[in-house]
Lab assay of single mutants.
Amino acid sequence: MGFKLLSKLLVYLTASIMAIASPLAFSVDSSGEYPTVSEIPVGEVRLYQIADGVWSHIATQSFDGAVYPSNGLIVRDGDELLLIDTAWGAKNTAALLAEIEKQIGLPVTRAVSTHFHDDRVGGVDVLRAAGVATYASPSTRRLAEVEGNEIPTHSLEGLSSSGDAVRFGPVELFYPGAAHSTDNLIVYVPSASVLYGGCAIYELSRTSAGNVADADLAEWPTSIERIQQHYPEAQFVIPGHGLPGGLDLLKHTTNVVKAHTNRSVVE
């Protein structure tokens, strides 16, 4: 069995187990497998329904001669939608809004960016022009300005110390501490036991640490421990890039980060 097929099978099995364990909360999309990078042309966006009122959005972007996937989250909030992270750029984010209108038909009224990198804030200006209120932590807003990236308009308070959590509509926002970046936030959907790890969490097929220019490698494993301790009931975990899975993604990420750190020390 090929690795790609095995990865998709694991996603399907995880979703099936969740649907059985929580039949009222989960209505997993039966329309197909989780979209992969090879299936999404740059400039297009796919939506994948995880649970009743919960979707991931998947886009792709060219970077350094390669094409990478990027995940975000959409959560229903009454007759409105909360968006977590842009679709990595203005063109993708405009396509995301169009796809949401086509498939869901509810307005996106608020959006949260989970850290300051372009795959999370690139497209904020498109959201703002569409009347979406954009939010991020003060740290993310400051770092985005320093980096020359787009800056969300509103500040999220109460997320300055490791372990801080605040309720934001249908989700809980959690600051686990520094990891992929010093400002990275985690998003949890309690009604569906869905954990969105953003770039602080890796997919299972990833074996290298990737972009760690703004990471705190020493603190990252401790931050992941905080996530595990705060959300032990999480059933569906979405990484910032690639295929979702279960809580095993947290341990896998820790292993990859520690291996990278150990290699760096040896070198």
Rank of each mutant, 00 (worst) to 15 (best):
M1A: 02
M1K: 03
G2R: 06
F3L: 05
L5R: 10
L10H: 13
L13K: 10
T14Y: 06
T14G: 03
A15K: 15
S16N: 11
A19R: 06
A19N: 04
A19Y: 14
I20M: 14
I20Y: 11
I20T: 06
A21T: 05
P23H: 05
P23V: 07
L24V: 08
A25K: 13
F26C: 09
F26Y: 05
S27Q: 05
D29M: 11
S30H: 15
S31G: 08
Y34F: 04
T36Q: 07
T36R: 07
T36Y: 10
S38F: 10
G43H: 05
E44G: 10
E44K: 10
V45G: 04
Q49R: 09
I50S: 04
A51H: 15
W55L: 03
S56I: 04
A59L: 09
T60N: 06
T60G: 05
D64H: 07
S70L: 02
N71R: 02
N71Q: 08
G72I: 00
R76Y: 08
D77R: 07
G78C: 05
E80K: 15
L81W: 01
I84C: 01
D85C: 00
D85K: 00
T86R: 01
T86Q: 02
A87H: 00
A87E: 01
W88K: 00
G89D: 09
K91Y: 11
N92L: 15
Q103D: 15
Q103I: 13
I104G: 00
I104V: 12
L106W: 15
L106E: 14
L106M: 14
P107L: 11
P107R: 15
V108K: 02
A111T: 11
V112H: 03
V112T: 04
T114C: 00
H115V: 00
H115P: 00
H115N: 03
F116T: 03
H117T: 00
H117D: 00
H117A: 00
D119F: 00
R120P: 01
G123V: 02
V124C: 07
V124F: 02
L127S: 02
L127H: 02
L127Q: 03
A129F: 04
A130T: 05
A133S: 06
Y135H: 08
R141K: 08
A144R: 10
A144L: 09
E147L: 08
G148S: 11
N149Y: 15
N149C: 11
I151F: 09
P152T: 15
E157D: 13
E157T: 13
G158N: 14
G158C: 04
L159E: 01
A165I: 09
A165Y: 13
V166C: 05
R167W: 04
R167T: 10
R167N: 13
R167P: 08
G169N: 04
P170C: 03
E172Y: 07
L173V: 15
L173M: 11
F174T: 04
Y175P: 02
G177T: 00
A178E: 10
A178G: 11
N184G: 13
I186Q: 00
I186H: 03
V187H: 01
S191V: 09
S191N: 06
A192E: 12
S193H: 15
V194T: 08
L195Y: 01
G197A: 08
G198P: 00
A200Q: 14
I201E: 01
I201Q: 01
L204A: 12
S205R: 09
S205C: 04
T207M: 11
S208F: 13
A209F: 12
G210L: 11
G210N: 14
A213I: 07
A215P: 14
A215Q: 12
L217R: 10
L217V: 14
A218S: 08
E219F: 15
W220G: 01
P221N: 15
S223K: 03
H230Q: 06
E233C: 10
A234H: 01
F236L: 05
F236S: 05
G240E: 03
G240T: 00
G240D: 03
L243A: 06
L247R: 09
L250F: 07
L250W: 01
K251N: 08
H252P: 02
T254L: 08
N255H: 09
V256E: 15
A259G: 09
T261M: 09
R263V: 06
S264R: 12
S264K: 09
S264N: 09
E267L: 07
